[in-house]
């Protein structure tokens, strides 16, 4: 009798451990790096990590929704780059010597940001439509738009960097409300909205259903095409927002912005427990995945690891975390 109780207890602990594996990994990384180097724990450094993670969280949330439908969006990074250029080009200081549009009047902040979001949205709709109506595999459809978005960014900027951004725009990223950085607040608001969509609306339920079993979703009367287009459109809009914020944070933009951000987002989502076979994934998980990534990036720099070795270590951590996390889905023998 006692042995069964012990067995069940062991099972519960193991079950909890595997369910919260990623949170434990984040915690361990955080404490571990901090113990090696005290600077890591400084308020400034933590703030820095969170600010950088904010933009990444917004991108990952867009990518995450797509992944849950058992799709993938490779265009994320390049759309971020393109929209960063668009927003930046319209928010240069009037006295800046290399202004892209010399005659452009001083626009209110929201117009270029909204434009960036709309460009992302349109590319997203394009992605969704080719996937839904032309039945293209998401990998190919978004590979296409990824290349197109980069091309447009090059044409638009003529491959020249865009600098001299207006102070009110860069303050959007550097400012804070009651000492909480704006970017963190924006990312949190976006996260709440996406959490709400995924959990509290039929649209969210359909996203999980399509990823869980597209045929059953079709028979159940889920409008698959509409749902897919909406998911990619939502993702595109988030990339647009992220692009504008990235330009504001870095004070400029180039056509090479956003390179391989989609891969970072996919890795972060996967670390955060989003299933590669669709139907599984949560907003807290995705945020944790991004934080693991950023804590790691920052920690490796602080510890003085060379940039090349950082890449190797990042790759190993991606594989190790997912290998650990995936255990909860592997059938027990």
């Amino acid at each position: 009798m006692e042995s069964t109780i012990n067995k069940t207890k062991g099972f519960v602990i193991r079950d909890l451990a595997s369910r919260y594996a990623i949170y434990l990994v984040l915690f361990a990384l955080f404490i571990g790096i901090g113990l090696i180097d005290k600077n890591f724990f400084s308020i400034n450094n933590v703030r820095n990590i969170l600010i950088i993670a904010s933009v990444r969280v917004i991108i990952a949330l867009g990518e995450g929704g797509v992944l849950i439908t058992h799709g993938v969006d490779l265009s994320a990074g390049r759309v971020v780059g393109l929209t960063a250029c668009i927003a930046a080009s319209m928010l240069q200081r009037s006295d800046y010597a290399y202004k892209m549009f010399e005659k452009l009047p001083q626009l209110p902040l929201w117009i270029p940001i909204l434009l960036a979001v709309c460009v992302g949205l349109i590319i997203g709709i394009l992605n969704g439509a080719t996937i839904a109506f032309l039945k293209l595999p998401p990998f190919i459809a978004t590979l296409g738009t990824m290349v197109i978005a980069y091309g447009i960014a090059c044409i638009y900027t003529n491959a020249q960097p865009i600098g001299g951004l207006r102070d009110d725009f860069t303050r959007l990223a550097s400012g804070s409300v009651i000492s909480i950085p704006n970017l963190i607040i924006i990312a949190l608001i976006v996260a709440c909205i996406i959490w709400f969509i995924l959990n509290k609306t039929p649209f969210g339920k359909y996203i999980y259903a399509i990823g869980g079993n597209p045929n059953a979703a079709m028979v159940s009367g889920v409008n698959i095409n509409r749902t897919l287009i909406s998911v990619y459109a939502l993702a595109g809009a988030l990339y647009g927002l992220a692009g504008a914020l990235l330009a504001a944070r870095t004070g400029g933009a180039t056509n090479n912005y956003g390179l391989s951000y989609e891969l970072d987002a996919i890795a972060a989502c996967t670390i955060g427990g989003v299933s590669q076979s669709g139907g599984i994934g949560t907003v807290p998980g995705i945020i944790t995945g991004v934080l693991i990534f950023e804590v790691m990036n920052n920690g490796l720099v602080i510890l003085g690891v060379s940039a090349y070795w950082q890449q190797v270590i990042k790759g190993i951590i991606i594989i190790a975390t997912v290998a650990f996390d995936i255990r909860k889905y592997i059938a027990k023998r």
Binding site: K205, Y208, A209, G212, A216, A217, S220, V222, S275, G279
Partner: peptide, 20 residues
């Protein structure tokens, strides 16, 4: 093949056709 959503809960499986 066309019935269940294996990774979703019993309630989500029941409600999928009637969220409206």
């Amino acid at each position: 093949e066309m019935g269940t959503f294996p990774v979703l809960s019993v309630s989500d499986n029941i409600l999928i056709a009637s969220w409206d």
